Simulated scan of single mutants.
Amino acid sequence: MKINRNQDTDVKPILNSVPDPILVETPVFATVAQQYYEMKCSAFAGRHAEKQALRLQMILEKYCLPSLADIPMAKLKTGDVLQVLKPIWEEKTAVAERVRVTISRIFEMTQALGICRDVSNPADWSNNLEFFLPRPSAAFQLTYPPAINYRELPRFFRVSRSLDSTQIRALEVMVLTAARADEVRTALWSEFDIKKRLWRIPASKIRYQRNGWDHMVPIPERVIEILESQPRSETDAVFPGLRGRKFLGESALNNAIKRVHEVDLANGGPGFLDPETGRVATASGMRRAFKAFAIEEAGVSDHLVKLALSQLDKATVNRSPILVQAVSKRRVLMEQFAKYVLSPNNNSRE
């Protein structure tokens, strides 16, 4: 069973021949789920509204509806919820918790409509599911985005520089500046000062620095070369997307890494896998590689690394009347990093 969506609008779905729960004495789960989906989509806002809608649709269609769709809400039991959660609780704990909360909210919506008011919520955690499942914090294991060893970066760049695409050039800028993928994808020409060799990332783009300080990024020579080689588009975007989109898609840089990985495999190389997980490296993982280089190879302080990665905690940013960004020291670090990864003499495959 599928959730009905109106493809002509961004996120607002339509109620296509689904009865209104208010008019149905004991609606089935799928009916209320559709209403819940519509309500949430109308509330989603901001840049990621479409992404939020798609994630909710995935949760409903992949996990909830297959086994719960035809169950009347008045007959929905804890056992039904457990049937959904148990197969994914330990392997996909974060997803499973979102599924549980979604089911719980759908049941609460039913109660708000005057149905099942005298029935306990079968998706509640306290005094209910806690007796059958380990606590989410106990089942959840902290994971990090797949990354390659920084010693693999010179070989990575030898492969990437043999390829020609906007996504690959954006990927190289991301690695050489240790910026976040979204900061690179949405980079604007107005943010760059080529003469001063600086990139000013607005605080509004940075997780803990919204309404705080812009992040000043010293850019090495290779980044300037890439910028100067980029054709100017009709918009201010440095890396415009395909098919008329203003920016590259959210998965563009991860896809670029996969392309470099596949080309290396085709050339007889080992590819670029995380040594711990065996998974292909990701855009976020490249920042981990930079951090390892900065600490192990360059020997800089932890504070300077956090400045370079724009990872100062919110409290530090808020209490600082002047945020000293140590641009000169970071420029030395970024040039050292660029020299390392671009050197033809650095070879991790000895």
Score class of each variant (00 low, 15 high):
Leu133Gln: 02
Val327Asn: 01
Gly278Lys: 02
Ala33Lys: 00
Gln167Arg: 08
Ala112Lys: 07
Gly244Lys: 06
Ser301Val: 04
Lys196Arg: 14
Arg47Tyr: 15
Phe132Trp: 15
Leu85Thr: 00
Val24Asp: 05
Pro154Thr: 03
Ser160Gly: 15
Ala179Lys: 07
Leu312Pro: 10
Ser204Met: 13
Trp89Cys: 02
Ile106Ser: 03
Ile226His: 06
Ile226Tyr: 07
Cys64Asp: 01
Thr93His: 01
Tyr36Leu: 00
Thr166Trp: 02
Lys329Trp: 02
Phe192Arg: 11
Pro13Gly: 14
Val119Asn: 04
Ile322Met: 14
Gly269Asn: 13
Ala96Cys: 04
Ala138Gly: 04
Phe132Ile: 09
Ile226Lys: 08
Asn254Phe: 11
Pro202Ile: 06
Ile148Thr: 09
Ser104Gln: 05
Trp89Glu: 06
Leu129Asp: 08
Phe44Glu: 05
Glu25Arg: 09
Ala289Trp: 04
Lys62Gly: 09
Asn255Ile: 06
Arg330Pro: 07
Lys2Leu: 12
Ala33Tyr: 02
Arg47His: 15
Leu82Asn: 03
Glu38Cys: 13
Tyr37Thr: 13
Arg151Glu: 14
Lys306Trp: 11
Val263His: 06
Ala74Leu: 12
Val11Arg: 14
Ala49Tyr: 01
Ile206Cys: 12
Asn211Met: 11
Ala30Tyr: 07
Glu97Ile: 06
Phe293Trp: 15
Ala281Val: 02
Leu54Phe: 08
Gln57Val: 09
Arg232Met: 09
Leu309Met: 14
Trp189Val: 06
Ser120Lys: 13
Ser160Tyr: 01
Gln83Cys: 08
Ala292Arg: 08
Ala315Phe: 03
Thr166Asp: 04
Ile201Glu: 00
Pro344His: 06
Leu23Asp: 10
Asn6Leu: 14
His261Phe: 04
Phe247Ala: 08
Gln230Asp: 09
Thr9Asp: 10
Ser160Thr: 02
Arg210Pro: 00
Ala139Lys: 03
Ala49Trp: 05
Ala283Thr: 09
Ala187Cys: 03
Arg169Glu: 07
Ile3Arg: 01
